[in-house]
Amino acid sequence: MAATHAAGPTDVPNRSVWERAAASFDDWRNGDQAALDELVRALTPVLWHVVRAYGLTPAATEDVIQTTWLALVRHGHQVNESAAVGGWLLTTARRTAWRAKSVDGRAIPVEDVDLAPSLPHTSAAESTAIEHLSASSLWQQVQQLDDRCQRLLRIVAFDDRPDYAGLASELGMPVGSIGPTRRRCLDKLRVALQKGDQP
């Protein structure tokens, strides 16, 4: 867990993904075509996780993300302030995902990712056995949460300033209950983790 705070080189300002996106968007609007590439590289990972939270297949998720970026290059003039570009993209992606999910009324195929046993994450050779255990048990416990909790937590994990009104209507709950639901989902996960870590 602590590894997520790993600092980059000290001479690089630790700018958030949103700040980098806003700067790239500004540059692009001022005629720097390469800045669009930077924007796509910076925000596509966030869009991936937020759209996947809607239960779409990888192929449908790619399509939603492509539609979102096409919308930006066509309608980017609607974004008044560069700082709002992240929110504009996320809102567009969530709406498109929601629509794709509603049109495709057929059952969403069960994804390998949902059922595959959690393999230990072995990217860091120095990881201790305890870190393996907690990372894999976190993933297992997340899978046990109800769909609404999974969707809400995944969206909020990647979008730290979510549009609560939009989320509320998609999740079928009043705006005022998003915050409490989010806390309840987190508490559930925390309790499950505590239980799961004690054999």
Partner: peptide, 25 residues
């Protein structure tokens, strides 16, 4: 933060996705 890492590790963005998007644009 742990949740974010778990999603990134277990459902990473597909290889080549960014390149396909850049081509589309």
């Amino acid at each position: 933060l742990a949740l974010k890492s778990a999603y990134e590790a277990n459902d990473p963005i597909p290889e080549g996705l960014v390149d396909r998007l850049l081509t589309a644009l």
